[in-house]
């Protein structure tokens, strides 16, 4: 059995997006409850959330943006940059806590205290650009974690796998010129789904050309298509890149019962996805894997999806 960390904090529920918003605190409660009732908590090492050190946030976001986010939030405005991004006064603090908890999970993995970790955090991060909040995301948790691993722990090559149903435009743009971070994303085709990027021909630029890989999937597709694309696009890419740590942008919104998008991946399909990412981590990265929550809005399905996810990480 692996030593798996679990990050969950009641304070992640404080980010209040108002009525009717899909990115709501009930998502995290469903995830926690799923893991708890599957009897997995005793096998997990709890990770304590704490606000991130600003030095790490600033490796990705400009100081100007961070100040703006803080000021807009504390002044009581309900949105940042776009109607999608609903906020309350606690949003900024919660976002810092999400980054901080993710970095603590990364630290514990690198210090050898854990093999891997699942960070059940809010708000999510993969749409957040350097200077812009987008698609319910404010700080790019995964991007900050990748830089932290490189700068604090001297990791040369970070591999990111993003299976949220939406393309992680923020993560892609942040690393598109960077050959030390490989960004792989599988998502609903951008002609149909938010945010409209992540086409096959987006492959990075400059020195980073070839270190971005996108697998857009047409609406209505299912487990077999994900499996085919993983095998065809991700496995050979990581075989060549040889990541030293794998960070996963974990989104459960490609599930067939999730109304945010049009995919038909089953609960078993998600299990296959996670098992194959675990295999990659064991093959190339000494098992070091950091899974960070992005989307997933089917409240009835999140408990089983989260429990399976963690069970696979425990290798039990």
């Amino acid at each position: 059995m692996k030593r798996t960390g679990f990050l969950y904090d009641q304070r992640y529920l404080l980010h209040d997006t108002g009525p009717y918003h899909p990115e709501r605190s009930e998502r995290l409660q469903a995830i926690y409850q799923g893991i708890e009732s599957a009897g997995l908590l005793p096998h997990l090492t709890r990770i304590t959330a704490r606000p991130a050190d600003m030095q790490w946030v600033e490796t990705i976001h400009t100081e100007k943006y961070i100040r703006r986010f803080e000021e807009v939030c504390l002044s009581g405005h309900r949105t940042l940059d776009c109607e999608d991004n609903q906020m309350c006064r606690e949003t900024y603090e919660t976002a810092l806590l999400a980054v901080g908890g993710t970095l603590e999970a990364a630290r514990m993995i690198m210090a050898g205290e854990l093999d891997n970790a699942f960070c059940a955090i809010r708000p999510p991060g993969h749409h957040a650009e350097r200077e812009e909040a987008m698609g319910f995301c404010y700080f790019n948790n995964v991007a900050i974690a990748a830089r932290y691993l490189q700068m604090q722990w001297n990791i040369q090559r970070v591999g990111i796998v993003d299976f949220d149903v939406h393309h992680g435009n923020g993560t892609q743009h942040i690393f598109e010129k960077d050959p030390t971070v490989f960004y792989y994303s599988i998502h609903e085709h951008p002609s149909f789904a938010y945010p409209g990027t992540g086409r096959e021909f987006e492959m990075g630029s400059g020195e980073g050309y070839g270190f971005t890989k996108n697998s857009p999937v047409l609406p209505g597709q299912s487990d077999e298509d994900y499996r085919r694309l993983f095998e065809q696009d991700l496995l050979p890419a990581f075989e060549k890149f040889v990541p030293e740590v794998i960070i996963v942008s974990t989104g459960f919104d490609a599930h067939k019962e999730d109304d945010m998008a049009d995919m038909r991946v089953t609960t078993e399909g998600f299990a296959w996805i996670m098992r194959s990412i675990m295999k990659l981590a064991d093959t190339y990265a000494q098992g070091r894997l950091l899974s960070v929550l992005e989307g997933g809005y089917a409240l009835d399905r999140l408990p089983e999806l989260a429990a399976d996810h963690v069970r696979i990480m425990l290798d039990a």
Partner: peptide, 24 residues
């Protein structure tokens, strides 16, 4: 121009519209 489509989809269904898979 949004990521937040769940409620608008539900309200359209409530009005009797069918939301199709675009590929269909």
């Amino acid at each position: 121009l949004t990521n937040n489509v769940m409620r608008v989809k539900q309200r359209l269904r409530d009005l009797g519209f069918e939301i199709l898979d675009p590929m269909q």
